[in-house]
Amino acid sequence: MPAEEPPTTASQEAARLAAFDSLIAADQRIEPTDWMPPAYRKALVRQMSQHAHSEIIGMQPEGNWITRAPSLKRKAILMAKVQDEAGHGLYLYSAAETLGTTRDEMLDALHSGKAKYSSIFNYLAPSWADMGSIGWLVDGAAIANQVPLCRASYGPYGRAMVRICKEESFHQRQGFEILLALMNGTDEQQAMAQESVNRWYAPALMMFGPPDAESPNSRQSMAWKIKRFSNDELRQRFVDMIVPQAEILGITLPDPDLRWNEERGHHDFGELDWAEFHAVLHGNGQANALRLAKRRAAHAEGEWVREAARAYAERTATSERMAS
């Protein structure tokens, strides 16, 4: 816990930093009670809470389709998936709490608009096919981002990510299968799938963050082994993964510049619209206001329930004390 630390001499400070650096260099994990540089703690809280917020806000676009899922099997799968997202938010909040920030503080930051979450959830999901695109592309990009995080240098983060990655293995597949069913279906269903992928492709690629040259926090995070690969490396890896998958689906990825580059051994792809990325990041997306309003409303409407449970717990604890 980051309680008031006693003043230290410069040499003590240097020794602690050296111990921390050598743990990182040896690929050891940092645990909650270890000393860590304040900037490392801050970077972790920022990344982990942002990640948790993304899970929670990410429940909304899919939650909106639970009542309309076109088959009971799809309804069950979607419920289980959205429920997993709540669970993953919980794992991540818990992991972040080991750094001395409470969940209430993190939620306050989310509700006040101070904290960020993944911009991808500020796009609308007006079509059933979006359940497919979100699973295949959005969860696919998230998994590409997350798998290396299982080895993040901060122990609780890595452990939470191990659990999350295991559970998410079905998320991308179910999305792919939604699209596969649509592409094997009627003309209307195929058009629905293609239209949806057209909307989600570029935003999904932008989920890896701005190009390395413009990503100020990345370099430090990589030095601390919170992040293991750069934004552009992960983006390239993702494009290389989805191209053959799109072929299996028979779906066209909406990028005229997308082609295999023999020399690089990778796919080249077109320039992304980073002005759009920054606009959404700064609140001008389709759904920024909606997502936050719905989240705030759920929290505010739950206040009396949380308060009731707390009052009941206090009262029973008191009466037990008096009885003993």
Binding site: M59, T67, Q83, A86, L90, K294, E301, G302, R306
Partner: peptide, 24 residues
């Protein structure tokens, strides 16, 4: 099913989700 993402606390989103899934 319409409680998911609207429960009073995240833990309860998960709990109601389980109940909805069982019932479905």
């Amino acid at each position: 099913g319409s409680w998911i993402a609207a429960a009073p606390e995240l833990e309860e989103d998960v709990a109601l989700g389980n109940i909805a899934l069982d019932t479905l």
